[in-house]
Design a protein around this nucleic acid. Structure first.
Length: 572
RNA sequence: UGGGGUGUAGCCAAGCGGUAAGGCAAGGGACUUUGGCUCCCUCACCGGAGGUUCGAAUCCUUCCACCCCAGCCA
């Protein structure tokens, strides 16, 4: 309590929270805070939506307020039930609760129609017979003011009957629209008599064939917010120009305590694709396996990849909220999942590219059960037994017949520790006569150095993970890397789809089918996550079966050795 | 050459007239039976130029750069 001043000096608050603070202080909206996440059900949610979801629901939580989930389903030509279901699933998965406040813009069509009547009666809206091209012509340009429509001054009665005719289906698609009567010479093009309703003889996924006129976003959105008594309507920057129209609509239906629109910068991330359109290009042309391809930034993709809701929420919290266009480095997202999984993922040994290792002086038929810590970051996680025997497999890259500088893994004559087991010494290796590849490595072990014994205190430079040839389980491991090569500058729309395809990382997915994992992994279930020691974090894929295990690499461990190697290669 | 926005380190981002938080990345070091984790250290004069002030990233002027807008999409 005493530290209220202290905490104030360290806590920084984003600009939206600052507005809320001010509104609460002034008792605006009677101190209420009510937000909403209003997706259009025309695609799958991605990490950018997660930012918005976390912002809206998070702001509600922090301010003792509410947040609705509302589908902005005003365009039946683009929207589908499938998307509604996936969005509901994803928001819930992320960990947010809209309680009983799941709404649909389409539920308000009647009320919106009534409000349109109000506008018409007040001389604020009119039915216009201009076609699309004509409306565009009449709108003018950035520098040339628009011209008023010849239908602009129809009588209220005529407008009323025409609008009803539109509703009754008396006119064809595109024949007429309802327009707001504002100002054709406004420097803000959105105010040049924007279209409020269009005729769309299209069946809606919720209202069926009840309507053949549908409201436009600019008209519908402020009303949806108002009907739900939203206080702060948070949206992205591109709607900044629409705010005067948002306010106009509410003012002209005489809204009491109208909500206020606040805009923030949407999330952009390096090395990936965020636009719905471009995501679609990748999915529909088979560049990825589907909307849940683990390389995609969709929530379903991230989930399959092994990202946790906690990590995503934490990421969204930490990137901040502002009005500056920005591109967040994908390495920051990776940091967030590493941080999370480091605390919770059980450690396990898995050899991705096996190399046979034989301990010459180890008894042929002995199997020892080695005690292994499940997670050094969590002592409560306990230990498990892992079988050890004469013939083992180690990582191919952990042996080098002619080691580079600073290499402290296995090589002829050198000693290394096998994690949770013995110190071994390399006494020889066998090469494949034809290919020249190393086929097996021979070692001797020092029985006194078994983990847990006094002799184990001896220090050696390197520690390797291993699996026993007798008990290891075969597995398929899918390694993923960033979807795109570049950091994001090339992602601009003008680069086009060809530019996008050209930027695809050819190594974004690599499948290893000869992997071996410790026997305890026999009965893992999809979604379970592990740390494969020294390799990274891995998640069981839905394709996985007990007799055919499949793991996805969520993210590698930070790897100093790779860095050192990278540098020496650069310098040579 | 209309309107609306934004410019603080490689990337996010605090700061709101009193002399640049934090995180990621990067580099260095300690520790280590994961070259992981953890810990310590290093890393900016605030888009440019003027001005106001004892004092400016914060105020004023001006210039520059970038983003968004001419769907009966959202």
């Amino acid at each position: 309590m005493y530290s209220s001043q202290e905490s104030k000096s360290t806590e920084s608050v984003n600009f939206i929270q600052a507005i809320i603070d001010k509104d609460k202080k002034n008792n605006k909206y009677g101190g209420r805070v009510h937000l909403r996440f209003p997706p259009e059900p025309n695609g799958y949610l991605h990490i950018g939506h997660a930012k918005s979801i976390c912002l809206n629901f998070g702001l509600a939580q922090k301010n003792n307020g509410l947040c609705n989930l509302r589908f902005d389903d005003t365009n039946p030509t683009k929207e589908e039930i499938e998307y509604i279901e996936s969005i509901i699933y994803d928001v819930d998965w992320l960990g947010f609760d809209w309680e009983d406040r799941l709404y649909y813009a389409s539920d308000y069509f009647d009320r919106m129609y009534q409000d349109a009547l109000t506008l018409i009666k007040g001389g604020k809206a009119y039915v216009c017979d201009l076609n699309t091209d004509e409306i565009r012509e009449y709108r003018g340009t950035f520098t040339i003011p628009g011209k008023e429509s010849p239908y602009r001054n129809r009588s209220v009665e005529e407008n009323l009957s025409l609008f009803e005719g539109m509703k009754e289906g008396k006119f064809e698609d595109g024949a007429r629209v309802l327009r707001a009567k504002i100002d054709m010479s406004s420097p803000n093009l959105n105010m040049r008599d924007p279209v409020l309703y269009r005729i769309l003889k299209e069946s809606h996924h919720r209202t069926g064939d009840k309507w053949c006129i549908y409201p436009m976003y600019d008209y519908a959105h402020p009303l949806e917010d108002y009907y739900e008594k939203i206080t702060h309507s948070v949206c992205t920057l591109e709607f900044e120009d629409h705010r005067p129209l948002y306010d106009w609509v509410l003012e002209n239906i005489q809204a009491v305590e109208p909500p206020q629109q606040i805009e923030f910068a949407r999330l952009n991330m390096s090395n990936t694709v965020m636009s719905k359109r471009r995501l679609r290009v990748l999915v529909e042309n088979g560049y990825v396996s589907g909307w849940d391809d683990p390389r995609l930034p969709t929530l379903s993709g991230l989930r399959r990849r092994g990202y946790t809701p906690e990590a995503i929420r934490n990421f969204c919290e930490r990137i901040g909220v502002a009005k500056t266009n920005s591109v967040v480095d994908i390495r920051f997202l990776e940091h967030c999942i590493r941080e999370d999984l480091n605390k919770r993922a059980q450690r396990v040994m898995a050899v991705l590219e096996p190399l046979k290792l034989i301990i010459d002086n180890y008894p042929d038929d002995l199997i020892e059960e080695m005690d292994c810590e499940n997670n050094p970051e969590d002592t409560a996680s306990g230990t498990r037994k892992v079988p050890f025997s004469k013939v083992l497999y180690i990582e191919r890259e952990d042996f080098h017949d002619n080691p580079p500088a600073k290499y402290f893994r296995l090589s002829p004559g050198r000693e290394v520790r096998l994690k949770n087991a013995y110190i071994i010494k390399c006494v020889g290796f066998v090469r494949d006569e034809k290919t020249g590849a190393i086929r097996e490595v021979h070692c001797t072990y020092d029985p006194e150095t078994k983990s847990g014994r006094p002799g184990a205190m001896r220090r050696v430079k390197g520690t390797l993970h291993w699996v026993s040839a007798l008990s290891a389980l075969p597995a398929e491991v899918r390694l993923y890397d960033t979807l795109l090569l570049d950091s994001g500058e090339e992602q601009t729309e003008e680069a086009g789809d060809d530019g996008l395809i050209g930027q695809l990382n050819p190594k974004s997915k690599e499948v290893l089918k000869e992997c071996l994992v410790e026997p305890g992994l026999k009965n893992v279930t999809p979604g379970e996550k592990f740390q494969f020691m020294r390799k990274g974090y891995f998640c069981v894929d839905p394709d996985s079966k007990p007799d055919k295990l499949v793991f996805n690499r969520v993210v590698s461990l930070r790897d100093n050795w790779e860095k050192i190697m990278g540098d020496t290669q650069k310098n040579s």
